[in-house]
Design a protein around this nucleic acid. Structure first.
Length: 115
DNA sequence: CCGGTGACTCTAT
DNA sequence: TATAGAGCCACCG
């Protein structure tokens, strides 16, 4: 198959998964990395989110947090609590940059996209 | 070309 | 329960 590898590219996959996160749900960098078969490369997911900012396509990066439900990337949203604000607007409780009842809002691509 | 850095996570002490 | 180190891989100067 001639086409390729671009579709299976790490970046593209990350974008796809993130775009599939339902409204009011969140997931973690590690979960995405694991879904892509590279659990140890969770940093790349974060880097991908950063890169996604200058894309034409809108990426709901606010729905991606670390495995503790902590909004580690909130500083990259520009203003202070932009990220937390977006999550709250979607019905996700956030306090002190920490998602409340994280497990309840957690969306696991391994299961939801279960193969 | 090489070293430092990072939106992470796991394991060991 | 905390703290420290390692692994991961792409980008930047």
């Amino acid at each position: 198959m001639p086409d390729s590898a671009k579709e299976n590219d790490f970046f593209s996959k990350v974008y796809e998964v993130v775009l599939l996160i339902p409204y009011g749900k969140v997931t973690s960098y590690g979960a995405i990395a694991e879904f892509l078969g590279a659990k140890r490369s969770s940093r790349m997911v974060g880097w991908t989110m950063n890169a996604s900012h200058h894309l034409i396509v809108k990426i709901p990066a606010h729905r991606v947090v670390n495995r503790n439900g902590l909004l580690t990337g909130k500083a990259f949203f520009g203003n202070g609590d932009e990220m937390a604000n977006l999550l709250i607007a979607e019905g996700v409780s956030v306090f002190d940059d920490q998602i409340i009842n994280f497990e309840q809002h957690f969306w696991n691509p391994m299961i939801e996209l279960s193969l």
